[in-house]
Amino acid sequence: MADETTEQPGQPAAAPAAPAAPAARSLDDIKRDPLVAAAVARVDDAITGAREQVGEITLVVDRDRIVEVCRAFKSDGFVYLVDLCGVDYSKFPGNTNPRFAVAYTLYSFQKNGRVRLKVFTDEETAVPSVTSVWKTANWHERETFDMLGIQFSGHPNLERILMWEGFNGHPLRKDFPVRGIDTGARIYPEVFPEGGGPKAGSTGKDVKDVNIYKGEWKNYGLWPVAQIGGGNGAKAPAPAPAPKPVAAAPSEDEG
């Protein structure tokens, strides 16, 4: 950030010189910013880093104390959780932090300003859920879990939200191929047990092998050709399917 300019290769001196960027403020200076000072004062030791860019303040927070920090910010006026999302830093050049980050964007109506909190975590370690602080965090955390596989401890129902249950992998991870994976979705999902598809990072070469269903074909497999193309002159009548008991038919006990 120290001397980043907006100069672009290929078009020298086209853009007028960017307004002289103010020298980057230190961690303590950012903590004293009137926007965040009051909240930071309560949880000063939980904030391990800070950065300011394009007028936005980012505070790096100790992962295990994120709920406490969020409560402090909420009681200081940051009542609106704008956004919560995860980032996979595994392919970020020069990254030394743990693999994942979760970014919380908060907004204060009184101060009319936003602040971003950030925690770092790895594949195994869960981030404490902030659903107890803001109800709106529920779906955001589910989406972050679904897309990146970041675990949130204390979430009321941490299940997939955009992908279907049983999907194998987390699409926004950097090792997930952009063209997707063959999930075997053309066959009914009951065929595959939970997480039965190919692994994320698969090259696609092994997909066919993985997806061959080794078990017995049930009724929901392919339709026998004779039944579909039989026509009216077919001699062999299609075997009448045995009527199956309908599970939990609430028919007899209606009052």
Binding site: G10, Q11, Q53, E56, V82
Partner: peptide
């Protein structure tokens, strides 16, 4: 605006709405 055709922002993060 007179900017480069190649859009390559500096390293960093931003939220805007």
């Amino acid at each position: 605006a007179k900017i480069s055709r190649v859009v390559r922002p500096p390293e960093g993060e931003v939220y805007h709405s």
